[in-house]
Nucleic acid binder design. Structure first.
Lengths: 169, 169
DNA sequence: AAGATGATTGGTGCTGAACCAATGATTAGT
DNA sequence: ACTAATCATTGGTTCAGCACCAATCATCTT
């Protein structure tokens, strides 16, 4: 669709590669994250929440592709450490709007700091520019896949919370 | 080291993104792979074996970063379907040299075919060229991390089995 | 008022994966 | 030749993630 010319496209499969690298990253991340009281999946959830600036639990479950009941547990963990807040949606008071707290933003930032060394180790074969390229591509894939959910989600009070990540550290 | 200029480098963290995408890919892959009698992890193992053209079980366990005993089980699965062969190393008869069979190469290829649709769905936001770029980067990260093990491994009978993937389909 | 929906809780079962101990085959050191 | 170390294998234990179900409460929709 996006490429009109009817050329032969020998697109390589990168599923196995992605899985392989994600595993390597995760194995190392777990030990680094443990002292912070977080697990890789918490990081993913926090990252999504930061990127969106708040989300419904359903929308979160949908983009995380997790079962709703398991998302509850995940959020319980995060709320117990006051990294997120659940507010009731003013429009539909059945819904919970999940948002990062200040502490959540900070914790996420320090977790990313702590993970810098891990990424340096795993992505060592890549130069600075290449890493940025990789980040851009991954970001594009990720946001491309959830843009629908994201449009739905920003009807909350946060107003025009755009779908982009704001890296600190 | 690789970047002499002492500029400020606001490298983005892509750990969470990688994990997120790997999960999405894996969830879909599982159902697609099931009819082929494979699981994502089998795919990863087969891919590594194809890239190397044979490997010691130890080397495989090391690059897969899996426990040795679990690799045994993984290989048992694959050998039961005659996708790999274990030969004893002529130099050290304690070692097993693991190699893809013809059937293994074919099965891997058809699995990749079956996964094409899945990747199209998940990586839909990327154009053809971008996907190739992504593939190149991931490949570079992956082979960069295991090049040491790869040099060790090619002392077997396969001769100069270079570390690159050969996509079919 | 009745039914559908969102979140929550508690419970069950499966699977992956790490880990440990023991064994047989083989190699290497003395 | 004897002993110690190494590789692969088997069997068993344990733990965590995750999907799934059922029930409950609050709320929205009709």
């Amino acid at each position: 669709m996006t490429s009109p010319p009817a050329v032969e496209q020998p697109v390589h499969r990168c599923g196995a590669l992605l899985e392989y690298l994600a595993r390597r990253l995760r194995l190392r991340s777990e030990s680094v994250l443990a002292p912070l009281g977080l697990r890789p999946r918490h990081l993913v959830a926090l990252t999504v929440l930061r990127a969106r600036g708040g989300s419904t639990q359903q929308a979160l479950a949908s983009t995380l592709e997790m079962d709703g009941t398991n998302v509850v547990g995940l959020l319980n963990d995060l709320e117990a450490e006051k990294l997120i807040e659940r507010r009731r949606s003013p429009e539909d008071r059945r819904r919970h709007i999940v948002e990062l707290t200040e502490a959540g933003v900070e914790r996420l930032a320090s977790a990313e700091c702590a993970l810098a060394a891990v990424e340096d180790e795993v992505l060592g074969a890549l130069g600075h520019d290449q890493r940025e390229t990789l980040y851009g591509l991954l970001q594009q894939v990720a946001t491309g896949g959830v843009e629908a959910a994201c449009v739905e989600a920003d009807t909350g009070g946060a107003g025009a919370a755009a779908c982009d990540g704001v890296p600190l550290c």
